[in-house]
Every structure is written in C-alpha cells, then in structure tokens.
Design a protein around this nucleic acid. Structure first.
Length: 309
DNA sequence: AAGTGAGGCAACCGCCGCAGT
DNA sequence: AACTGCGGCGGTTGCCTCACT
C-alpha cells in the first residue's frame, strides 16, 4: 500500500500562482520565516499543496534569485559541473547561489543541451583527437550521468581548488572564469535575451520584485530569514561564489546544506586523491590557446553583466 | 490576419532520504 | 528496529508565447 499523497488532492489549487497568492505567501514567510511548509497552506488559507508553496518560494519569491540572462560565465560553470556531476541540479545550483536548480535544469534542457549537441556535431566534422573528443565525455552526462556516483559522499567538489591542482591556475574563481571564457557558449549573443521578454505574471521580474520590495525593506523579517538560514546551517558561507558581484542581499540567501556537507567532506578527501582533469576541462584548456585573444574580451563582458537586482 | 509548430518555462508528480517517534 | 511524515530532488508535463508560413 502506497503512501498517501502529501496533501489532500481535494480542493487543492493547481497551476500558475496569482499575485495575490504570492503576496500571501511572502507575507507569511516574512512573518514566520521559511520552513514548516506543511503549516503554510493551513495558516495562510492558501489552497495550495505545501510542496507547491515551498517550490514557489524557493524558485521565484525567495530573495537573491536572478532569473534569465545566464552569463557565459554561468553557462561555462553549468556545462562544466554537469559533465562532472551529471543531472544533479541541486548540487550544480549550489555553485550558483543566485540560480535555482529548476532554472538551471530548464536552461540546460532548453539551451545548453542543444548548444552542446551542435558543438559536438561541429567537433565531429573537424575530427578532434579521440583523447580530447568532447563527445566521449559529455554524451554520457547528457544521457543520465551514468559515470557519476550518485551517492552524496563520493562526489568530488568540481570547483575545489584541489581539483585544479594540475591546471595552470590555482585560483578556483579564476578557473571558473577561464572555463567560462573558453566555453563554446561564451559568446556575446548567448546572453539570454528571450527569457526576459516573457510577459506572463509568473516570470515577471517586476511583479516579484514589487512583492519583495516590501519584504526587503522590512528589517525584522530580513533578520528572521538571515537567522533561520544560519541556524539551519552554521556553515553557511559564500566562499564558493563566482567572480560575479554579490548582490547586496546575498546574506539572506538560504543555506545549501547538501553542498556544504559535501564540500567539507570532500575537501579532506581530495587532499588524498586529486582527480585528473576531466576531458571537458582538457578540451576547454586546449581550445583556449587559439581563442585567447577574442575570449579575453568576452570575459570582460561576462563579468560586467549588470545584476538584475 | 489567421493558423500552426516549436521552444521556453512554470509547476506538478513521484521517489528518496532523513529525522522524529 | 520499524514506522511515519516532511522536505528535497529530478523528471516530466502542459500551457503560453513567438516565429514562421
């Protein structure tokens, strides 16, 4: 006999969230802080499943989220991490604190996968040496990351300093920048212009930021969020932030518990075993030699992309 | 201008892990 | 140790928008 559904299906509203619902949810979390999602629909009167409330908050209403306009730098990180971690979007998202796993997953499925395929096709035409052939490493990752050990404790930190011990750059931030620069996706036109053009409510930055304006201006709720975040995970830190500028409210970002556990776990492990450069890293580094000049210009643009908040 | 197909994205579904009892 | 419930995660769906004919 299976487990009953997490919430009573009868009377549960589905579909897109309305501004009114968002306001109710934000107001409630402003007062009580995130967590105890079970009680959210009960206490707010929202006719929504607790999961739906959590999803709405974490993916769209939570402060500190950037939406759309993935930078080449971010694309590079995503591609790199996907090749290493597979479709573990939450883990990947933890390296891009401003992005949600859902957003990254969608972006991968709709943009990056195609670009990668396209690049592979081009690569096949020009027939790179087998040892550095992108398709030999990336294809398995696309098809489910069978090469990745899905047990949390065995995953290495793909952006850890140690992971790059054999590369020319010892600074993880510089390495991620390097990857972004050398990524086939690092093109000026790759800024996701279409994603900002949506007029639907759910993806309207205006609406969400309006909702959040009151939230962010209120001092006590901010403290609540900050407190709850640090209480839940005292290891909360932003040492893994990329070269992009931190938003002013970065300190209210929720914790990344899985990642932090992994990192602390991994960093000791990695001191013993330093994984070699992945093929994609090799490829990225190889490609750089001939593209350095152009891509240096790109990287400037990449890191100067204005923040949405 | 209307129809149609493709693409993008928000949200749901179901499974899993973990904590509490 | 076994059971239960909640939260988290990844896969998938379905709606909406836009470009093309």
């Amino acid at each position: 006999m299976g487990r009953p559904p997490c919430c009573d299906k009868v009377g549960i509203k589905k579909g897109p969230w309305t501004p009114e619902e968002d306001i109710i949810l934000v107001s409630y979390i402003q007062e009580h802080g995130p967590g105890n999602w079970r009680s959210v629909p009960i206490n707010t009167g929202l006719m929504r499943c607790s999961k739906s409330c959590r999803l709405r908050w974490t993916n769209y209403l939570r402060p500190g989220i950037r939406r759309g306009n993935f930078t080449p730098h971010e694309e590079g990180i995503i591609v790199h991490l996907q090749s290493l971690l597979g479709n573990r979007w939450a883990a990947i998202a933890s390296y891009l604190p401003q992005r949600t796993d859902n957003d990254i997953k969608n972006y991968w499925n709709t943009h990056l996968k195609k670009k990668l395929k396209k690049h592979q096709a081009i690569g096949a035409i020009f027939a790179p040496p087998p040892s550095s052939d992108l398709s030999t490493t990336v294809v398995p990752a696309i098809s489910g990351a069978s090469h990745v050990d899905h047990h949390h404790n065995t995953i290495t930190n793909p952006l850890s300093k140690d992971n790059y011990a054999s590369s020319a750059c010892n600074n993880p931030a510089e390495v991620t920048q390097l990857i972004a620069r050398r990524s086939p996706f690092a093109a000026p036109g790759s800024l996701d212009a279409d994603s900002s053009s949506s007029l639907s409510y759910a993806s309207s930055m205006d609406n969400i930021s309006k909702l959040l304006n009151g939230f962010m201006k209120s001092s006590s709720p901010q403290k609540d969020i900050k407190r709850s975040a640090t209480e839940v995970n005292p290891l909360l830190s932003f040492e893994n932030m990329s070269c992009n500028a931190l938003p002013d409210f970065a300190d209210v970002l929720p914790p990344q518990p899985v990642l932090m556990e992994q990192r602390s776990h991994q960093e000791s492990k990695q001191q013993q075993a330093q994984p070699p450069l992945s093929s994609i890293e090799k490829w990225l580094l190889d490609e750089a030699a001939e593209q350095v000049v152009d891509l240096m210009d790109l990287s400037d643009g990449c890191c100067s992309v204005p923040m949405l908040f």
